[in-house]
Simulated scan of single mutants.
Amino acid sequence: MPKKEVKGEFEGNTFEVLNTWKDGLKLFRNGDLIEHNQDKISVSKNKPIISKTITIDNADRIVEVFVYAVFRVKIQIKIDGVKIAGDKF
């Protein structure tokens, strides 16, 4: 099964997205699973497939994962609207 991984760092935290056809999309923070999405189709570049509020250093942050999959799977991780890792859309 093909899989796609994207990793990024933000304020001392590691964020990783792992996507496979069988298991769907998983978002990890420092190795801990924080969200799991099993949608099979994503054709919107502008709507996050995952949006999660987390606390980093006593500040609430919005982590968003965007997936655009038509011919290939492209993934972006954004925190508070700023891309920290992933493909260019």
Rank of each mutant, 00 (worst) to 15 (best):
M1S: 15
M1T: 09
M1W: 07
P2L: 12
P2I: 07
K3F: 07
K3M: 05
K3D: 07
K3L: 06
K4G: 00
K4R: 03
K7F: 02
G8V: 02
E9H: 08
E11T: 03
E11P: 02
E11S: 06
G12N: 00
N13C: 01
F15V: 06
E16N: 06
E16T: 12
V17P: 03
L18Q: 12
L18E: 13
N19Y: 12
T20G: 14
K22H: 11
G24C: 11
L25A: 08
L27G: 07
F28A: 04
N30M: 05
G31T: 08
D32E: 15
D32S: 14
I34L: 10
I34R: 11
H36S: 13
H36T: 07
Q38M: 10
D39F: 00
D39M: 03
S44N: 10
N46D: 09
K47I: 08
K47E: 09
S51F: 00
S51P: 02
I54H: 06
T55K: 14
I56N: 13
I56K: 07
D57R: 13
D57C: 08
N58M: 10
N58W: 14
N58E: 15
D60I: 14
I62H: 12
I62T: 15
V63N: 00
V63W: 04
F66N: 00
Y68V: 02
A69E: 09
A69L: 00
R72V: 13
V73I: 12
I77P: 01
I77N: 09
I77W: 02
I79M: 14
I79E: 09
I79W: 12
K83M: 10
K83Q: 11
I84E: 05
I84W: 05
I84G: 07
A85Q: 03
K88N: 14
